[in-house]
Deep mutational scan, measured.
Amino acid sequence: DETGKFLVLALYDYQEKSPREVTAKKGDILTLLNSTNKDWWKVEVNGRQGFVPAAYVKFL
């Protein structure tokens, strides 16, 4: 159920650099879980949760 969740689009490829991050490919649609940090947003992609740089994604 996606009610109340926001989707964001990956603008660039991002390769995770730590276990707390997730890899995303340009064009991926990610479920935004938390955007309270202006630099790192928590997302879910391909069943995995983790952080990506906020500058790499935008709201749909």
Rank of each mutant, 00 (worst) to 15 (best):
E21C: 12
W40T: 00
P19T: 09
A55W: 09
V45F: 11
K17N: 09
S18I: 04
W41T: 02
E21Q: 09
L32T: 02
W40E: 01
L32K: 00
G27Y: 04
L33Q: 01
N34S: 12
L7F: 15
F6V: 15
F6Y: 12
Q49C: 11
T23S: 15
L32V: 13
E44G: 03
V52T: 01
D1T: 14
V8L: 15
V8G: 05
K58H: 09
A10P: 01
K38I: 08
V52W: 05
P19N: 09
P19E: 11
G50S: 01
D39Y: 15
G50M: 04
V43Y: 02
F59Q: 10
W40C: 08
T3Y: 13
V57Q: 00
D1H: 14
A24L: 15
F6T: 14
F59T: 09
N46Q: 08
L9N: 01
K58V: 15
F51Q: 01
N46C: 10
T23Q: 03
Y12D: 07
T36Y: 10
I29N: 01
V43K: 00
K17T: 11
V45W: 05
D28W: 08
A54E: 03
A10I: 14
S18D: 10
V22H: 03
N46I: 05
W40I: 02
Q49N: 05
Q15E: 14
Y14Q: 01
Y56D: 01
T36F: 10
D39C: 14
K42V: 12
V52N: 03
A55P: 06
E2P: 13
A55S: 14
G47P: 02
A10Y: 05
S18P: 04
W41M: 03
K42L: 15
A55F: 08
G4C: 15
S18N: 12
D13T: 07
Y56T: 10
T31F: 11
K38L: 08
E16W: 06
D1L: 14
K58F: 09
D28A: 08
E2M: 14
D39I: 13
S35M: 14
D13A: 06
E16F: 05
Q49S: 09
R48P: 04
E2A: 14
L7P: 01
L32E: 00
E44C: 12
E44W: 05
P19V: 09
D1Q: 13
F59K: 10
V52F: 15
V8D: 00
K5I: 12
L11Q: 03
E44Q: 07
W41V: 08
L33F: 03
K38S: 11
V22I: 13
K26P: 06
K58Y: 09
R48Y: 06
K42E: 14
D39Q: 11
A24N: 03
F59R: 10
E21K: 04
V52D: 01
Y56Q: 04
Q49V: 15
K17W: 06
G47F: 06
T3H: 13
Q49F: 07
Q49A: 10
R20M: 13
K38F: 07
K26E: 08
V57D: 00
N37M: 07
L9Q: 10
N46H: 09
S35N: 12
S18T: 10
D28I: 06
T36G: 09
V22E: 04
A10Q: 07
D28T: 06
Y14D: 02
T36W: 10
T36A: 12
T3V: 13
S35V: 09
K58Q: 14
K5V: 13
Y14A: 01
F51C: 12
A10F: 12
K26A: 13
G50C: 08
E2Q: 14
V8N: 01
L33A: 01
V52K: 02
K38P: 14
Q15L: 13
G27H: 05
F51H: 02
T36V: 10
K25L: 09
G47V: 05
G47Y: 05
V45P: 01
Q49W: 07
K17D: 05
G4I: 12
L11A: 04
V43L: 02
L33K: 02
V52P: 02
D13M: 06
V57E: 00
G27I: 04
D28R: 02
A24W: 11
L32F: 05
A54Q: 04
Y14P: 02
P53K: 05
I29L: 08
I29M: 06
K38M: 09
Q15S: 11
Y14H: 03
